[in-house]
């Protein structure tokens, strides 16, 4: 396999993993209007949870349960769901901003645990040697990556299809009804706070799933993979693709990740060494501009068609 093709496979695995996060965020923001300011936290919980559950036993660590990969991923998802429940229960009856602030807080706390709780998370070094599922079955890294792309692709497709079904179901219609007119929905005997909590927890669980898949692919976790910047990148992916639209979420994930990767590549090639940190800032500024300008001028998103436009995307 040529170098470019191998890189493309690698790129797509990461982009599709992020697209699952974006779909989770879409359920929260695009369909329910819940603002999650700590996306990276739930992604990290899934990743760390999976790593702790599937990692090899080591005397200096609390974790290392050497569970099978699927069990680890499910465990990571459950942890992400619990974290979502913790902030959701506290805030979903209150002003909408409070969820944003709390999710921001939980992401910071997760980052601190990742950095400082050495016995659980390996601290700044992170956890290494996390087994990659079925790695020995494939002879070469290239073939393995191709397999993993198929795995992530299949899961992305399943998540996409399941969300489409859920959104067409009575529950999905209830989400829409609550978003359009909360009082009317409440007068029909539905509990808007409960439905919002369900959507929020489900969305965060998907972020946990993506975290588990990410760890399975790269084989280690490190706090550096879960910087707050990732939250901004995921938002950019969602809003560029057009929130309230899962097809757009996938397209946005691939598109924005491509832009990020290419801008990083261009900066490392074109800028002299002592300007690299400024180059990094410019790369982030592109993400920030993407968010603000899209919100201002193309609230329906840059790519992807918006069949169902939310109040928030108007």
């Amino acid at each position: 396999m040529s170098g470019y093709l191998a890189y493309l496979v690698f790129f797509l695995i990461v982009a599709l993993t992020y697209s699952i996060v974006v779909m989770g965020l879409n359920l929260q923001w695009g369909y329910t209007g819940l603002f999650n300011a700590g996306v990276v936290g739930f992604f990290a919980i899934g990743a760390y949870g999976t790593a702790i559950l599937t990692g090899p036993d080591r005397p200096e660590l609390i974790g290392g349960f050497a569970l099978p990969f699927p069990a680890g991923v499910v465990g990571g998802m459950i942890l992400a769901a619990l974290a979502a429940l913790l902030v959701g229960l506290a805030t979903l009856r209150l002003r909408e901003e409070y969820l944003a602030i709390s999710t921001f807080g939980i992401a910071i706390s997760i980052q601190l645990i990742g950095l400082n709780f050495d016995a659980l998370t390996g601290g700044a070094q992170g956890l290494t040697g996390i087994p990659r599922p079925l790695f020995s079955t494939f002879g070469t890294p290239g073939a393995y990556n191709l397999f993993y792309l198929c795995l992530v692709g299949t899961i992305t497709a399943i998540v996409f299809a399941a969300l489409q079904v859920a959104l067409q179901s009575p529950w999905g219609r209830l989400l829409k009804a609550i978003r359009e007119d909360e009082t009317a929905a409440a007068s029909l005997g539905k509990n808007p706070a409960l439905v919002r909590l369900q959507a929020f927890v489900l969305g965060s669980t998907l972020m946990g799933l993506a975290g588990g898949l990410y760890v399975g692919f790269i084989g280690y976790v490190s706090p550096l993979d879960f910087l707050p910047l990732l939250t901004f990148q995921i938002w950019a992916m969602l809003i560029v693709g057009g929130s309230g639209n899962n097809r757009g979420a996938i397209v946005g994930a691939v598109g924005v990740w491509a832009l990020w990767t290419m801008s990083g590549f261009a900066i490392s090639r074109l800028l002299p060494v002592h300007y690299q940190s400024q180059g990094g800032a410019i790369q982030v500024i592109i993400i920030g501009l993407l968010i603000v300008l899209t919100l201002l001028f193309r609230p329906r998103g840059l790519i992807g068609e918006a069949q169902s436009v939310s109040r928030h995307a108007r």
Binding site: E96, F232, W235, I285, L289, I291, V292, L295
Partner: peptide
Amino acid sequence: VFASFGVSLL
């Protein structure tokens, strides 16, 4: 609120 996050990054 969303936009304020984007602005903060900028």
